[in-house]
């Protein structure tokens, strides 16, 4: 009932859509509730990241069921897939992958359009809040499911006055297992 439509073109798989505002507002309200329940902003940041992690590990299945991607064994390829296929599929936005470290273990996902941040105006008292931390967790969780252990942290945040949203990805470990979805055989 949720997977309607054919798996169409490579870049436009058919996931059931909704108006994003319900998602945006629900997330915002959850953040508000966590702040009033925990009071410690760092703890809220952790909870948001953990929530994202749990979502990410399940989103991967949804993604792989819809996207026609061939074996994606390098961190570089994976970052590209997240930026150019996964983000558009789930949030209808794209990111750019930039600032690669020389050893190819670190990069940045840069977004200027972020549905989570629609309508959000961060009050001064919550300056330490990483409002979009759920996304950091989603990416970490998703990549863990394809055997890459990464650290994700926000280095730029438009809600805090920066000119973009930049998520820094750092590959800690790449467990060398065969990617379960092979396109040959």
């Amino acid at each position: 009932m949720l997977r309607s439509g054919p798996t169409g073109a490579r870049n436009a798989p058919a996931l059931e859509q909704i108006n994003a505002e319900v998602f945006t507002l629900t997330y915002g309200s959850i953040v508000r509730q966590l702040i009033s329940d925990y009071e410690d902003i760092e703890e809220v940041n952790k909870q948001l990241e953990q929530m994202g992690y749990n979502m990410g590990i399940r989103l991967v299945d949804e993604f792989l069921a819809k996207a026609k991607i061939s074996r994606c064994s390098s961190f570089r390829d994976t970052a590209d897939v997240v930026a150019k296929q996964a983000l558009p599929m789930f949030l209808n936005v794209t990111a750019n992958v930039t600032n690669w470290s020389p050893d190819q273990t670190e990069c940045s996902l840069v977004l200027t359009d972020n549905p989570l941040a629609d309508f959000v105006e961060l009050p001064d008292e919550y300056r330490e809040l990483r409002y979009c931390n759920v996304l950091a967790g989603v990416v970490r969780g998703a990549l863990e499911m394809v055997n890459m252990e990464v650290e994700c942290r926000w280095v730029s945040d438009m809600l805090r006055g920066d000119d973009c949203y930049e998520l820094r990805l750092k590959l800690k470990e790449h467990r060398d297992e065969k990617f379960p979805y092979k396109d040959d055989d």
Binding site: L25, G28, V31, R32, D118, F119, V120, E121, P123, Y126
Partner: peptide
């Protein structure tokens, strides 16, 4: 309406 949609 947009201001009221701010979670804060």
């Amino acid at each position: 309406v947009d201001t009221a949609s701010n979670p804060f």
